[in-house]
Amino acid sequence: MSPQGSFAAALLDPERPCPAGLTAWNGSDPAPRFRVYRNNVIVSLIDALADTFAVTQELVGEEFFRAMARLYACAQPPQSRLLAFYGASFPDFIEGFPPAAGVPYLADVARLEQLRVVAYHAADVAPIGSDEIGAALADEGALPGLVFRLHPSLSVLGSAFAVVSLWAAHQGLRELSTVAPATAETALILRHGLAVEVIQVSAAAGVFIAALRVGESLGAAAEMAAAEDAGFDLAGTLGLLLQKEAVTALHSPRRSS
């Protein structure tokens, strides 16, 4: 192993000894000095995770969270120099982390928080104008084939747990004691202007928006949503997307565009 390879390996594995070849001016054991680097690396990674996963930390307490984050950081250190997105696989790690099994909704709350960070930093794309919307809606025959492009900040998270309510309770938006965690909820996450919003939508609306997002036509997405729930509110869901300025392009494949 190269010198920096040994140094790096020892940083991430507290069981490894201090790398060879280090010295101190006063002849003292360099190991405590090396531990400053080990501590800097791991604490900075834990802090980065704590920034992104603030509610996750509140749900289990700082001590538990930091111990869990430390194990994750040693096992899966960042592979990108852009630390804002570090921890994309942390929710999966939490899901498979036996000590967290008593908090079954923890991984989904972490997923929600990770999607909020992605939304915060996503590209700026202008919404389509009302005249374009009007023209598209006026051409009824073309409506089912209409394909939407949604804002890059947008994502949908369906959960068997009350992720939106749990998250909202930790923002002071509702009383935590009124939340039944085992209630399935679907979150729509997007950035509207500069603010990231977390909006609870029906499961069918979640299916619909997720289908539009991957390029399904309006007709196909509406059918998938109706299969989830025959009472799916198409007009209301489209209205929500337009109100949040989340539609950035409309495209009708039957015409040249």
Binding site: G5, Y37, N40, P77, P78
Partner: peptide, 17 residues
């Protein structure tokens, strides 16, 4: 300083001889 090795980013400013 160096801050990455292989495909791992260590997020610290590390020393070299």
């Amino acid at each position: 300083a160096w801050s990455s090795h292989g495909d791992v980013f260590l997020n610290d400013l590390l020393p070299a001889p």
